[in-house]
Amino acid sequence: MLTGRIGCGIEIGTGSRPPIVRDLQGGVPQGTYSPAPEAAWVKDGCVDTGITDEGGLGLGPQQAVTCDSQYAEAKIVDIVDGGERTARTECPIDTDGFLDRPTGETACLRNLAGPHAGDPGKGGGILRVGDCIYAPDDGRAPPTERECYDRDGPGKIRSFAKKKAQCRDGDTATRRAAPTPVICHGAGAAAVRLGPVAETGACVKKPAALSLPGLGTSVRTPAQVACSDKTAWARVLGAARGKDRCPSATDYTLTSSLSYPSTSCLRRL
Rank of each mutant, 00 (worst) to 15 (best):
E90W: 04
D23I: 07
L59H: 12
Q70Y: 09
V21K: 04
G56L: 12
G7E: 11
V28L: 12
G83R: 08
G31D: 14
I79N: 04
V21Q: 08
D48M: 10
R22I: 14
E84V: 15
S69H: 12
Q30D: 06
P37V: 03
T86V: 11
T32S: 13
L59S: 14
C8F: 04
C67E: 02
Q62M: 11
Q63T: 09
Q30T: 15
Q62T: 08
G55E: 10
V77N: 03
D81L: 05
P92G: 15
V42L: 10
R17M: 12
D78N: 15
V21L: 12
V21I: 15
I6W: 05
A64L: 09
K75V: 03
P29V: 11
E38T: 15
E11C: 02
P29R: 14
I51N: 06
L24S: 05
G13W: 09
D53V: 05
V65G: 00
G45M: 01
I76M: 11
V21G: 02
T14N: 09
P92E: 00
R22M: 06
G55H: 10
Q63I: 15
I79G: 07
G60N: 08
R5N: 06
E54V: 07
P19D: 13
G31Q: 14
A87W: 01
I10F: 04
I20N: 08
E11Y: 05
D48F: 11
G50I: 01
T32C: 04
D68G: 11
C46N: 02
T52K: 08
A39W: 01
G58F: 00
G45N: 01
T14F: 11
Q25C: 12
L24R: 13
T32P: 05
E11W: 03
V42E: 15
R17E: 13
R22N: 05
Y33G: 01
E38I: 04
A36E: 12
D81E: 13
P35N: 04
G58T: 05
D53P: 13
A39G: 07
D48W: 14
D68C: 08
G9D: 09
G4N: 07
R22S: 06
R22A: 02
D48T: 06
R85I: 07
D44A: 00
P92F: 00
A87T: 07
C8A: 14
I51W: 07
I10N: 06
I76N: 04
E38R: 10
E11I: 10
G60P: 07
T66D: 10
P61M: 10
L59I: 05
Y71T: 03
D44K: 02
D78I: 06
L24N: 01
T89S: 13
Q62G: 00
T14G: 04
D53W: 10
V80E: 00
Y71N: 01
T89I: 14
C8R: 12
A74L: 00
E73C: 03
T52N: 12
G9E: 09
L24G: 01
Y71S: 03
C46D: 00
T14W: 05
V77S: 09
G83Y: 01
Y33H: 13
Q62W: 04
P29D: 12
G26K: 01
Q25P: 00
C91K: 03
C91R: 01
I93S: 08
P61E: 11
S69M: 13
Y71I: 00
I10G: 03
T86L: 09
G83C: 11
G55Y: 12
G4C: 03
D48A: 10
L57K: 07
C91M: 05
I79F: 08
G83D: 13
